[in-house]
Amino acid sequence: MSVISMTVNGKPASADIEARTLLVQFIREQLGLTGTHVGCDTSQCGACVVHVDGRAVKSCTMLAAQAEGAEILTIEGLAPNGELHPVQAAFREHHGLQCGFCTPGMIMTAVDMIRRIPDLDEETVREELEGNICRCTGYHNIVKAILAASQEMR
């Protein structure tokens, strides 16, 4: 066991944990932030995507210890003041979610995508979603939501 510390959604977070604790376990079990989900065990579904120092990362494929000292942003911290982030709002407006389980990872991936790529088109959005699996929507409305948010945030 050793103590690790990081900043999560702008607040300091610290816990005494086993070295093998994954970042997603730290977030869900230690901090009780259960918006970040686990949908697979082969690092492919993307339900667990959070931002580490501003970049989208699969929190199921990172040890909590690797995030020592890092700034973590989870879905709960995306719109701290109650007003929705434009990507969250676009997912709602365009019905980009059904069961909601993949949604936090999708939204965190989309925010990162829009940050990196200024001129998104449909083909690029679809390629960029390679690491996020949704079983409900057929992606049609997710793609629409991301394109709309990208326009909105320009």
Partner: peptide, 9 residues
């Protein structure tokens, strides 16, 4: 390589 999140790590 992989997907965007994998490429970040």
């Amino acid at each position: 390589i992989g997907d965007p999140a994998v490429r970040h790590m």
